[in-house]
Design a protein around this nucleic acid. Structure first.
Lengths: 160, 160
DNA sequence: GAGCACTAGTTAAATTTTTAACGAGTGCTA
DNA sequence: TAGCACTCGTTAAAAATTTAACTAGTGCTC
């Protein structure tokens, strides 16, 4: 199966894909153990806590999380059951609704954050020197930008 | 929420986590569109194709895929239904079984590989210069090693 | 201002993944 | 060689995710 990826790049690809998977698994496990939150829960809490009014439209939240609409509906209603967010109809667009961070949600985030960030440090960041950090930021920033752009363009018009 | 991760590293972490998620989503989508395979299907096919006798013990396969045992059972039985693998009892250990690549499975891999690798190139590798490739290999190789090691150790003995 | 294409989000069903419990086999120890 | 702790992998039920309709609302165009 030696096709179209030189061996240097293939090694990079394999190292990346394996380590990413392991890292994600480990972070989820730590988060669950320390705070009883999933990675998605945590991410929702962070995004809402940073948003003006600590609230976001469902669609906006979905696109930032890279979640499908229906997945987000499920995610938010689960967090609603657990008291971390509430949902309010959107004032200017009666189709829409917004997810709002509750006091309990903010509390949960404040409790979880130190552990989670420590976990990110131990499993990833403490291993990296400054040049490597810069490299990751540059590489993944660029790739994220390109993917974000290609995805927003692709639905609208056909390939031709 | 400024705790325990300096802003440079926080930026790296955010860029990484977003781009990784987007990349994974994009690759899955491409793979499914071109070959009607999931990322997991493809990965199983690669591992089996490279294994001696094109066969692997369930446990071995699970640990390489970073899958839980039950998830692998499901994954393999799904691929079995689609004719890509078969399952045989393990000769030396009557508890065990091995997954074996079928001719159709190998065919499916050969069909899918060029498209998939092209997709890895377009969405990731073509953007990287040699220094960046080296950086990724080094960083993720190291992190993967550490996570692999910590995980195998952790079940056996307690923290003390 | 009626018709219509499009957007926002939800719901229902099917699929996948996790969690927990289990059946069978191994291999050590007494 | 009986007992027992442990491993291998599967199964069953619960939870999460995807896929495919579908409801309601928007905002154009005529």
């Amino acid at each position: 199966m030696t096709e179209s990826l030189d061996s240097t790049r293939e090694a990079a690809w394999r190292a990346y894909i394996e380590a990413s998977q392991r890292l994600y698994t480990q972070l989820e496990e730590d988060l669950r153990a320390e705070s009883n939150l999933s990675f998605a829960d945590y991410h929702v809490l962070v995004l809402l806590s940073e948003a003006p009014g600590q609230r976001l439209r469902m669609g906006e939240l979905a696109s930032r999380l890279i979640f499908s609409p229906s997945r987000l509906t499920y995610q938010i209603s689960s967090m609603q059951r657990r008291g971390m967010v509430s949902k309010e109809p959107c004032p200017d667009d009666r189709r829409g609704s917004e997810a709002v961070l509750t006091a309990a949600g903010l509390l949960a985030l404040r409790d979880a954050a130190p552990h989670h960030l420590a976990s990110v440090r131990t499993h990833l960041m403490d291993d990296l020197d400054d040049a490597e950090v810069a490299c990751l930021t540059r590489v993944f920033g660029r790739i994220g930008d390109r993917l974000r752009a290609s995805r927003s363009g692709s639905t609208t018009h056909a390939t031709s």
